[in-house]
Design a protein around this nucleic acid. Structure first.
Length: 461
RNA sequence: GGCGGCUUCGCCAAGCGGUAAGGCCGAGGUCUGCAAAACCUCUAUCGGCGGUUCAAAUCCGCCAGCCGCCUCCA
């Protein structure tokens, strides 16, 4: 098994991944709270973990990937009031929207996609365990986690409790809590008609941090290898997860990975700041491949500035990669395993904390080589290499090129038009020939005259 | 106030001690009826100032600007 290095947010240093002799890697990544359409920031996160899972699988690991859906939350409830709709329906609508986005971004389905509301009974036993161990206390129908019970509290954030307290001045202290940093595991209802669930402590709703811990515990027990999420979740979400899980069932995730934020004009893209672009909006003018390219072209831990130009540059880059595959005459879905230096180098750079920008550079190196290769067999192998590697990054360059389209009627129409254009060209009626070319161009179909009277066309966004 | 991070070509962005990847855009050329594509060629010494070193974008110190987290957040 290939060895990999990764940056661990908990130890705050780059480490060699220790597989503990197992070929399986259990990964849990924090998914969305479904109260609205997802934005580019969610896209980055999803694409990042998707590509890392793909890569780990490509080098031989068996990955069991879980990505949760938070389907109960105050924001969902607020939205349900706005829409005059049941909270559960709100959650289902936006989960569906999220799935649509994931499909368009070619993000693989995780192996498990637990919804918080499906794990209530597990949460109850989780809370009970904490209460028994003295790590949680009940006040009326609220249950709080006592951070004083966990001596490593603050380890992920990298700050002792005393320092964390200092930053707490801005928040109204909840007088019911024993310590200002204690957080709710279970929130009892304030009003009788609130959306809530029956629990051993009365009607209420689970605390956000609890969900992930309980679901991890249920799915993986103490065998969680990698836990990932956006770096805005480090504190308090992941910090609290660690505290709960360690207190309830012992060692939690062995490694922590966090992706950097998407920025807009130097500020973090966020719903609350209103400076977000939804994935659906972005897909109106660009492709899923381009968004993925845009994301993968920078290292996952770095902040990434979102701009229209950046997306357009990414789309142009994708177009060039697809271009190198536009004349394949083999079945791209039946590629037997190949080995060469490009692949070796590709695996090398990705093994070094998942350096996707360098991996992308290799794709372009292959593209350059394809474009100048005269030998048919060699060229074919390079094209196969490009397809295989681009798939590991999660690109779909094949459908982008629309091989299948060439079989259908639209394709026949295009060929017919191109035939007419050739006739006009033969008769030197270039004005008419150009009319056809412009017509196609207006429909995002670009044509190119190659030597020997061959004509190539490509759908170009 | 605390902790963490960022500053590299016009734009995006790698690099983690050995003499600046890649993408986009742009310029010139080959090809072409023209165009596009492809191909060839061209474009930075790394925020500032010091220091360590045979050698620094890379390590250390100081300064400046920017951002994130500490409240829901991918």
């Amino acid at each position: 098994m290939k060895s990999i290095k990764l940056y661990d947010s908990l130890k705050k240093t780059q480490l060699d991944y220790d597989s503990c002799g197992r070929s399986t890697i259990n990964i849990y990544s924090c998914g969305p709270t479904v109260y609205d359409h997802s934005h580019i920031g969610h896209a980055r996160s999803s694409i990042t973990w998707d590509f890392i899972v793909r890569f780990l699988r490509s080098i031989g690991y068996t990955v069991v990937w879980t990505r949760n859906i938070t389907d109960i939350d105050d924001k969902i409830i607020n939205k349900s009031k706005d829409l005059k709709m049941h909270p559960d329906k709100v959650a289902r609508i936006y989960s569906h929207s999220y799935h649509e986005d994931m499909i368009n971004l070619n993000v693989d389905w995780p192996d498990y996609e637990p919804h918080a509301t499906q794990y209530l009974s597990h949460m109850y036993s989780f809370i009970e365990k904490l209460i028994k161990k003295g790590a949680a206390y009940v006040i009326d129908s609220d249950v709080y986690f006592s951070i004083a019970s966990f001596k490593h509290y603050g380890c992920l954030k990298g700050q002792p409790v005393e320092e964390l307290e200092k930053g707490f001045g801005r928040v109204e202290p909840n007088p019911r809590k024993k310590h200002p940093l204690d957080f709710a595991l279970w929130k009892g209802v304030k009003e009788e008609n609130e959306y809530s669930f029956e629990s051993p402590w009365g009607k209420g709703r689970p605390g956000w941090h609890l969900e992930c811990s309980a679901m991890c515990d249920s799915l993986y027990g103490t065998n969680l290898d990698i836990h990932c999420g956006g770096d805005d979740l480090i504190f308090p979400h992941h910090e609290n997860e660690i505290a709960q899980s360690e207190m309830a069932s012992g060692p939690f995730a062995r490694y922590w990975l966090h992706n950097g934020m998407i920025m807009v004009n130097g500020k973090k893209m966020a719903k609350s700041d209103g400076n977000f672009i939804t994935i659906k909006e972005a897909l109106k003018t660009t492709s899923g491949n381009a968004i993925r390219f845009f994301v993968l072209n920078s290292h996952y831990r770095m902040p990434l500035n979102y701009t229209e130009e950046g997306i357009q540059a990414a789309q142009n880059g994708i177009n060039r990669l697809s271009e190198a595959l536009s004349d394949i005459n083999f079945n791209p879905y039946l590629i037997t395993s190949i080995e060469n230096d490009f692949i070796k180098e590709f695996n090398e750079v990705l093994s070094n904390d998942f350096n996707s920008p360098q991996a992308l550079a290799i794709l372009f190196k292959i593209t350059d080589t394809i474009n100048i290769e005269k030998n048919k067999n060699k060229k074919e192998e390079l094209q196969k290499t490009l397809i295989v590697l681009s798939k590991i990054l999660g690109f779909n360059l094949i459908d982008n090129n629309d091989i299948s389209l060439k079989e259908n009627t639209l394709s026949k129409l295009i060929d017919k038009l191109l035939g007419w254009r050739s006739d006009y060209k033969t008769k030197k009626e270039f004005e008419n020939a150009d009319k056809i070319r412009n017509l196609l161009k207006d429909s995002n179909i670009e044509i190119k005259d190659l030597p020997n009277n061959q004509i190539k066309w490509q759908i170009k966004l």
